[in-house]
Write a protein that binds this DNA or RNA. Structure first.
Lengths: 107, 107
DNA sequence: TCCATAGTTCGATATTTATCGAAATTACGC
DNA sequence: GCGTAATTTCGATAAATATCGAACTATGGA
């Protein structure tokens, strides 16, 4: 299986990154990848059809947020944390941190 | 003129903020508001029709990113920096900072 | 080889959104 | 009150996008 296409750091643009993260499903994927380190596509679907998930993974991949490598029949996804941190310092941290407090913290 | 509607901090949601910032025109508006402090709508259009600009301001306002107050016939826009920083610490800073170096810096 | 598994690609459809012109709204100064 | 300036609202149109089922591709066995 030929490896998937990933944009070079040079081709990663902020607007696309923000757009990719503006969808609840994708933001959730990214949050969980951050938590898990890496995961297969199936491990991250939430009852949604595969085609839908595949679409979201593609948007994230094309934006430069995640890397998808194939390990046999399954695809392993992980955050491109290093590239992101270098290109947009603090961005991912701020986004992943957001909501972890305040938005329903106490009680 | 009745004041415009602005979401309460409670109603500001990350996804919408990211979405609002994923458009080049709007990102530019926010960048310049950050630089200028405040500005009228006309001061920020870039040759684009007013109706188009009005739309973008609305998206930014509805997302909670900017505040629009009326000073007579003109509307004064400014970033809701304090609210943003409180809700999503580091987010705006990271986004406004992004690209100020690296993405074509030296040469 | 045949099958089950993991994902992608293709098509179709329904929403959302960007863009812009024209008309409506509001405020100000004369 | 009137004309002008600043914006919003309306309506239409075109382009993106989300979602899902069905078909297709690749992999690793029994």
């Amino acid at each position: 299986m030929r490896p998937m296409k990933h944009p070079l750091p040079t081709d990663i643009v902020l607007e696309r990154v923000l757009y990719a993260l503006s969808d609840p499903v994708r933001l959730d994927i990214v949050r969980r990848l951050d938590h898990l380190g890496e995961a297969s596509c199936t491990a991250l679907d939430c009852g949604r059809p595969k085609s839908t998930m595949s679409h979201h993974f593609r948007v994230l991949r094309d934006a430069g947020l995640i890397r998808t490598e194939n390990d046999g029949a399954t695809h392993i996804n992980s955050l491109r944390r290093a590239e992101m941190d270098q290109l947009f310092p603090g961005l991912l941290t701020a986004i992943l941190q957001a909501g972890r407090d305040g938005e329903g913290g106490s009680r």
